[in-house]
Design a protein around this nucleic acid. Sequence first.
DNA 1: TTGATAATTTGCAATATCTCTATATTATTT
DNA 2: AAATAATATAGAGATATTGCAAATTATCAA
Lengths: 113, 113
Amino acid sequence: MNRESNMINDEQAVEIFKALSNQIRVNILQMLKEPNNNFSPQAHVIKEKGFDGGVCVSDIRSKVGLSQSTTSQYLSILLQSGLVEMKRIGQWTYYRRNEETIKQFEKYIGLKI
Amino acid sequence: MNRESNMINDEQAVEIFKALSNQIRVNILQMLKEPNNNFSPQAHVIKEKGFDGGVCVSDIRSKVGLSQSTTSQYLSILLQSGLVEMKRIGQWTYYRRNEETIKQFEKYIGLKI
DNA sequence: TTGATAATTTGCAATATCTCTATATTATTT
DNA sequence: AAATAATATAGAGATATTGCAAATTATCAA
């Protein structure tokens, strides 16, 4: 697949800046860098099922200390921006970083900012 | 001077993300990348006086199409974040990019995001 | 000193964001 | 089918952002 096609545009970049213009959302993204170090051993961190490193909403919620609904909403803002991706398995929704978007975002900063 | 000391922290980074969470402010920063290409020849782009590339508020205003007061306010948000620096010469205030902060911001993205 | 030009600050209305509680939805278990 | 658990959505009040016009401050020129 053509690598150029992954380059994010100005509009997407502003969406990402908005997503990151909140300390707690930045914290969430940072925590998800190392799920196994940042969440308790009994947390639902996926190791199989093809979504390695995914963490469920309630485990993220207990780390950030916000209400369940705010946590859910913040995760959907991160999802909309493309910085994370999610997969629903049973009654759980697992979120993990979308490293491809993050890489393209870094590239955007270097070239366009 | 110690390079480490220039590393921006999470709080500063969020300030920068806020500053960039607006398309027009991103545009201003992008325009200031190449002042001589992006502003009319008669624009007040500094070439001497030790602030090369600085552009005055009214020239920026006529490019972005916002009111004078909004333009001024947006520039002060960019200034607060550290992404630009300013110098007043006579009745004009010249703004230019702060490449050092931008470089440290890029570094932050790569290491911390 | 008076008037013109440049920029900042202030005040305002419209819209957006933050964060909560309450409720709805979806999936599991009994 | 009903109870339980995880997540999402709706709605509300407080706060922040957007962008303007008008007032204020600073500088220059005559």
